[in-house]
Nucleic acid binder design. Structure first.
Lengths: 363, 363
DNA sequence: CTGTTAGCGCATTCAG
DNA sequence: CTGAATGCGCTAACAG
């Protein structure tokens, strides 16, 4: 071994002076005149350390502004104290509410949340799930994107707990929390029928989205039970699309007298179009939507909607996940929790209430 | 050393069989018949490996379903490939939009984002910032909560890059991206004055929020320049509070003829109250707000607002952060980027436009 | 109650 | 082009 490599070897062992790097537990131990384990124990608190030692450790920590390296701790130990949250997007109020609720629950458990969006794309969803796994999250909360395309399976996740919500995936071994999409839709369409409507159109996004399809099913059921013809359009992604669609419908001999929109985005765009067309709601055309939102009471007119318990659903999903994490369970057959929805009767359906009236979907 | 401890020692070295744990690079190396470094190099791609070796490694990876441990990689290397995002909350559309934009930029850079909310509480904010530091994020994007109480300083963050946006903190060494809160507010209040309003009330949240205060300043400036008396109320957190306030104002001899609300939450609540009171906007009382929102065009009436470029601001903040991360800079004096806002004239101010008219705040 | 040893999975360093 | 050794910061398991 020549001179150079000796130097190199020595250099390797000579750590840079403390000033230039973050203090480690070792630095604390040295300053406190104890071993690293005493520091570890003093800080984690789940083991006995003499009061004297503890004092000196704490003082050293203070002095050095020591901060434990959570990364090292996660790496060393079995859990990272973080969960992953995979959502279609954060731009929509519904998903934002979900994210808020999940992060709240996580904090209550002392967990961090790593968040990512898929843009409703299954390939992105899969890639992000893999990345979460690489990050060794202790569990995952997922709002899956497209039902059929989704490649999210227990096999992918191994023994990492996963709870899906709002929309399920095909694999029944993953827990899922849902709302009564079909029953709620059916009920609100029945309400429209009670108002005397016979031509009710359903405006949805892609049918490959579980919720959009489930809501369609409720709509169809109500229509068929009443002996009415269904009239559903999917792919209502933009205001322009809806404008075209509506114009065509109005010019046809039999325009719909009511619209049922599949979610907030469609509701908003439809209302925009109707307003720009100068139509009166509900006299020219009635409008009801799935999913309530902040401004639904101050739109013109106030909107009748199916209200889903977004907050409760998200909390239920997150709580279930922490149950799984705590117990170390990865069930063969996952739980399937279905939460009830409400119908909020305002004025866009034709009701005259001056304040909203809430009824249960199974009334 | 007795028999038991010998067994223990042996047990320590005998790793559990591969089936019961995630495969490591070592397993891949063994299966491929190469060294771990060859695997590392083959996978990271930034070093030369013979095509033959690479093939065998890739096959072994496939076979074992090996997934690199990002935690170990982050721990070992200098960067974690994750950034932190600290927000007041995710329930409000504005913040959700910010979160969406930041996560998008992060993904473009191959980064994960760890998200957390403060609930506008400075102590939580500080604690969460510390936690982010413990997690060794490579950088932080923060929407600080209360300006004066904030304890976020360069000193706390050390050499971890931090970009604040929407609201600044006191420490000038942290980068900040803002919008023209004051100029925008001033301009929209001037517009109200041009409509002939003389008694214009400002409804805000806490003045300890930078934006709320900056918007108040713009309001006050416009009023004073026009020789009008200011009438500002802070703490308009709930609909009930606003209802009380408005009733009192209406019963007074000199009720305001127009309202300027400080952000979407206040705007919504005020509109709710006004609607329930049966008042006509803008004839009985005009209403303009800061921050545009999805439904602003279909409220009754469509609302005139200051529109801020939430998306652009967030992207700018995130991009600046990645600049800092890439260059390893932690400047003494941070950048201060101020983005322009627009006034969107709809009908709640008294304008008769059937479609919104957009003007710049400095027109 | 406290210190020593060892190793988590990976990538840097150096030596072939 | 490849591999062996080493240590990142921390804590479980042991031995005092």
């Amino acid at each position: 071994m020549n001179r150079n490599s000796l130097q190199a070897r020595v250099r390797q062992h000579a750590r840079p002076p403390l000033v230039h790097r973050k203090p480690t537990m070792c630095d604390v131990a040295r300053l406190a005149g104890v071993g690293t384990m005493t520091v570890s124990r003093a800080l984690s608190g789940n083991s006995y350390v003499s009061t004297a030692s503890k004092q000196r450790v704490l003082r050293a920590v203070e002095q050095l502004k020591y901060r434990p390296n959570e990364l090292a701790r996660a790496f060393r130990g079995q859990c990272s104290h973080s969960i992953g949250l995979i959502l279609p997007c954060l731009n929509e109020a519904f998903f934002a509410t979900c994210a808020h609720a999940v992060t709240s629950v996580a904090r209550e458990h002392g967990y961090s949340v790593i968040i990512t969006t898929t843009g409703e794309d299954s390939a992105t969803e899969y890639a992000e799930a893999e990345r979460m796994l690489e990050l060794h999250v202790d569990g995952l909360v997922v709002i899956p994107s497209r039902f059929r395309q989704s490649r999210l399976t227990r096999n992918l996740f191994g023994k990492t707990p996963v709870v899906t919500f709002d929309r399920p995936v095909a694999d029944p071994s993953l827990d899922v929390v849902l709302v009564q999409n079909t029953a709620g839709s059916r009920r609100i369409v029945e309400h429209l029928i009670e108002h005397g409507h016979k031509r009710i159109a359903y405006l949805g996004l892609s049918r490959s989205l579980f919720t959009i399809n489930a809501r369609f099913l409720g709509y169809r059921r109500a229509m068929q039970d009443a002996g009415l013809e269904t009239d559903a359009t999917f792919g209502c992604e933009t205001e322009a699309f809806i404008a075209d669609l509506l114009k065509k419908k109005l010019e046809s001999g039999q325009p719909p007298s009511a619209l049922f929109t599949s979610n907030t985005k469609v509701t908003r765009n439809a209302l925009n179009v109707i307003t720009h067309l100068g139509l009166n709601v509900p006299n020219d055309i009635a409008l009801v939507g799935f999913d309530d939102f902040d401004m639904a009471e101050v739109t013109s007119p106030p909107l009748t909607v199916v209200r889903q318990p977004a907050h409760e659903m998200s909390r239920a999903a997150a709580s279930l996940l922490f149950d799984r994490i705590t117990r170390g369970e990865t069930p063969h057959i996952g739980n399937r929790i279905v939460l009830p929805v409400e119908i909020v009767l305002r004025n866009s359906c034709g009701c005259k209430h001056s304040a909203p009236v809430v009824i249960h979907s199974d009334n």
